[in-house]
Amino acid sequence: MAEKVYRTLSSSGRAQRFFRQIWYAISHDRVGMIGFVILAVIVVLSVISPAVFPVDVESDPSSILQGPSAQHILGTDHLGRDIWCQIANGGRELLVLSFVTAVLGMLIGVLIGAFSAVVGGRFDEIMLFLADVWLSIPRFPLLVVFSAFFTLNNTTLALVLAILSWAGIFRTVRSEVLSLKERDYIEVAFMQGLSLGHIVIKEILPNMMGFLAVNFTLLMRSTIYSQVGLVFLGLLPLEQNWGVMINLAWTQGVIYNPRTILYLLAPTVMICLLILSLVWIGKALEDVFNPSLRK
């Protein structure tokens, strides 16, 4: 019996249990399920679209800024290209960028946060102070200022965003680790003379997985905000995503042309949907992993 219990808690089963828990969280929460479906649709579209709905490479002067029709269900843009195809392909870049940024940002934040909390003392105090200072620097203006000094593209943006977001994750991870550190089983691990690395990786981190998953969706959200915002301001190279579509539609003055309002509206709605799906998934995860917030 005791052995069995031990095995279910061992690290091999942990990843599986973690994903099962996530699935439970999402499938048992109506709103979470809606979020998951939206995200799944966007992911599927991103994967199949290059083959199924390829973006028009050539402009078609004969059909500029048309309203919805059987041929172009969402109409055409200022170069006569089909908008639906652009919508279908426009999420990929945002998804990849926000995912990569979130992974990087989490890595940095978790490493520093866990390290600082475990080491404690003066070091921890200074780190906390620095994080507070960092958090009061306005992020988006800083990004804009950066764009004058570095050429921002999606790769550098992911790096810069990941580095910029360290303070927020640091603070939450640190306080979480601190509270975990107080728990009995961690104290027992220390008393058994297990190494610090072992305790952090094997004992503390697995217990924070849910918490990290929630923060992951938060980080993805803020990345999407920054990316779309910068694209809208024209500070990022124009590639194929919804932010670029908004930018182009806006600069073409589409907003005052009610017939083709979909050119502007469609990507706007898509971005809203993507962010909402992340919010809802995050909320469902929070409900399961953080029972104290329930009700």
Binding site: I224, Y225, V228, I246, L264, T268, I271, I275
Partner: peptide, 16 residues
Amino acid sequence: FLSAIPDFLIAIFLLL
């Protein structure tokens, strides 16, 4: 919903 939507998208909706 409001707290999740980026402010500039709210601006576009308001403009519309």
